[in-house]
């Protein structure tokens, strides 16, 4: 096994260090070797860069073709995939962007949103809760209600106003503006098969996040009112049920 392993090691190193002569020594003299080798090397890089190009379109738009090309090349070189199932490739891209572009701190949050949209697409399916079930619960039990969310749920909290740039991009505007330093909150969720991305107010985010963490409705409501005393519980709950955020409801027996 030594020769084959040596060859594969050399091939791998050659791809990532761009030094094909090492490999040439391993397999002997081959005519036009570098040109031939580069076909493989280019395939590896371009296919993986294309995965990132497809999964992070807004980051690409913000950075422009040249910078995105550069950062994806470096990412592939530093973080090649560890599995042949590329559905999971790109998970570390957000952190990489944060280090690579410190002057664009919002890029990390945007890339996390883009990653979440991809990731939850492939998570376990779920069946939304039938809202009628809530109406059969006695009113004195409401405070103790706890809710289950779909497996495919992602809460995003950012120090930047991401909604405008996100919506501009979805409307295919030619230019997107850098977001302001105003906090924004959103929920990406996939009940059934459709990925939904909803922008939330701070108090709505707090309320839903607490429910997601398994806190009873009464406690989640209380936390939300700390942020905004006028928090509208019935409206938020109504939206959550209409948008199919929940898969199950139970009465908590704590306390």
């Amino acid at each position: 096994m030594k020769q084959l392993h040596k060859y594969q090691e050399s091939f791998y190193k050659a791809i990532f260090t761009n030094k094909p002569p090492l490999l040439q020594d391993a397999i002997g003299e081959v005519e036009e070797f570098n040109e031939r080798f580069n076909i493989y090397s280019n395939n590896v890089f371009s296919s993986l860069k294309n995965v990132l190009k497809d999964d992070f379109p807004l980051c690409r738009k913000i950075l422009g073709e040249q910078k995105f090309n550069q950062v994806t090349f470096e990412f592939v070189r530093n973080f090649p995939p560890e599995s042949g199932c590329l559905l999971a490739y790109g998970q570390k891209f957000s952190r990489f962007l944060e280090v690579f572009f410190p002057a664009l701190p919002y890029l990390k949050d945007i890339s996390q949103l883009e990653w979440a949209k991809k990731e939850i697409y492939y998570r376990e399916d779920s069946i939304p809760l039938d809202p009628q079930i809530i109406s059969t619960t006695p009113e004195d039990k409401y405070e103790a209600l706890t809710f289950k969310f779909p497996e495919a749920t992602f809460f995003s909290e950012s120090s930047f106003s991401l909604q405008e740039i996100w919506e501009d991009f979805e409307k295919e505007k030619e230019k997107v503006k850098a977001p302001k330093t105003i906090p924004s909150y959103s929920l990406i969720i996939r009940p059934r098969f459709q990925v939904k991305h909803d922008w939330l107010k701070a108090e709505e985010f707090c309320f839903l996040k607490k429910l997601y963490e398994g806190k009873p409705l009464g406690e989640a409501f209380e936390k939300a009112t700390h942020i905004n005393p006028d928090f509208n519980l019935s409206e938020t709950l109504g939206i959550a049920l209409t948008r199919e955020y929940f898969t199950r409801v139970e009465v908590s027996h704590e306390n």
Partner: peptide
């Protein structure tokens, strides 16, 4: 695949007994 790294291409193997 080598050393746990997946190179996203169909890379050639030498046609040897090994």
């Amino acid at each position: 695949i080598i050393n746990g790294i997946y190179l996203n291409d169909l890379l050639p193997i030498p046609y040897t007994k090994e």
